[in-house]
Each structure stands twice: as C-alpha cells, then as structure tokens.
C-alpha cells in the first residue's frame, strides 16, 4: 500500500486517536481499543516508509497512450 491518499488518511486517523486517548474522556475498554488501533496504525505507516522496494521507470507516450518502461539506474551509479 504505497498510496499517498490512504497513507494520509491513516496518519490523520492516527492523530485523532492520539488526541482522543490523551483527552482522558474514554472508558478503559475504549482506551484499550484506541491504543491497540493507534499502535497498529503507527507500525503500519512506519513499515510503509521503511519499505525498500522501489521502481524506477521511464514514462513514454506513443500515439496518445502512456506506457512505463523499466529504467535501470544502476548504470548511473558511477560518476558520468
């Protein structure tokens, strides 16, 4: 899940949970539920940011249609 929108939604949800938990207005049962959900969200978001899978592609447009071509950037490693 490396989707900008759903990532932002999860961060917002997490911020809301953090606020709710610190408000002190929840019952113990609700607090535990929020805590569990919050920790899960924080770990999930961190995992996404720590992910090391990346793609490098070239955007091409032929006859009005877009296509992506794999781009090998290892050849760029050496100083050109």
């Amino acid at each position: 899940m490396k989707d900008k929108q759903s990532f932002e939604d999860e961060i917002k949800r997490l911020q809301k949970i953090v606020d709710e938990l610190s408000s002190g207005k929840l019952t113990l049962g609700e607090s535990l539920k929020k805590y569990e959900e919050g920790v899960k969200l924080a770990q999930g978001c961190s995992a996404i940011l720590n992910e090391a899978q990346r793609k490098v592609e070239l955007l091409m447009k032929k006859e009005g249609k877009f296509s992506l071509e794999k781009f090998d950037d290892t050849s760029l490693k050496e100083e050109a």
Binding site: L14, Q15, I17, V18, L21, S22, G24, L26, L28, S31, L32, Y35, G38, V39, A42, Q43, C45, S46, L49
Partner: peptide
C-alpha cells in the same frame, strides 16, 4: 510516528 507510538504507550499506562 515514533512520537505517536510513545505517546500512545505513555497515555495508556497513565490511564
């Protein structure tokens, strides 16, 4: 995110 994790743990243990 680390800050949130700490805050959540701190708050729940306070509660």
């Amino acid at each position: 995110l680390d800050g949130y994790k700490h805050k959540l743990s701190f708050d729940i243990s306070e509660i």
